[in-house]
Amino acid sequence: MKHRTFFWFILPTALAMLLFIALPIVSVVTQSLFTPHEQVFKTVESCTPFKCTEATVIDTEATEALREESPLGRFAGLSIYLDRGHLATAEVAEAWRSSDGLKDFFNKLGNLPFYRAMSFTLTYTFVVTPLLIILGFAIAVAVNSLHRHLKGLVIFFSLLPMIVSPLIGSLVLFWMIDSRGVLGTALQWLFADPNLSLKASTGLTWVMLIVYGVWHSAPFAFVVFYAGLQTLPQDTLESSMIDGATRWQQTRYVVIPHLMPLVTFVALIQLMDNFRVFEPIVGFNASAHATSLSWFIFNDLGGETRLLSSASASSVLTILGVAILLSPVLIRTWRDFNEKG
């Protein structure tokens, strides 16, 4: 295709991405370097017939003029990144000096909002991803051995947890595990503890969110693996059987190696998606016990005071995190492309 034709074909989509993805990134990075202007104060003297008092008031005109002049605010350099709400370098250094032992240090780190969000996001990402791959694989193998009339029906119901909006899915589960809901009651009965509430403890909240994450994403792994099983080389399987492989050995040495590329694919997609975990925290109303990076940004942006600078700094840090997560994929794609020539 000629460069010229290519240009006209790609123009609309490139323009959309440029204007609404690339430029916002630039603007987010810029905003994260500025902080809002402080208000300008002035001293006014107000005199009554008997005595004069001096009062400090906000000079609205001057403040307005300052805002008009440079709407981004004043340049703050990297200070927003380093403040208590983000990387908190001073606090971390202090904690490192004063704490006895690593455990104490991590406890102190857990009190800083950014590290709290980070620790949940990473735990969630790296616990949910392997679990959902295992569960998805198990379902795929089990469904594959079903009668073919049943398969369609099973796939239909399996798709549901994945296809509903994360917020709706988490709400549906949340209402069930409410201490007055059906699962909550069942759990109370199971553990013989009438006051058991999953919402009250940090540990249980994390477990709840992770269970939700697996429930939500396992169907994706299932469908991909199931499709992979359809292309399983029957010859290899049969010859392994002739060689006396047990069922477990067949799975271990024929099926799993065949599905390995798909496992990588699912893992990468899910690492990306789980890293942005956000809606379940809103749905489960869990922000007191678990916050994620995305929720952290959302929280800054919402409400009456939109803390744009702070949200921007968190956004940039999150994007960096995604970039680190994504680097293996990028390297792989790069290699693939070069092989193709």
Binding site: F20, I21, S27, V316, V322
Partner: peptide, 11 residues
């Protein structure tokens, strides 16, 4: 790969 929410501050 970028979470959409990271762009919102820019909008």
């Amino acid at each position: 790969a970028m979470p959409p929410i990271t762009l919102v501050a820019g909008y």
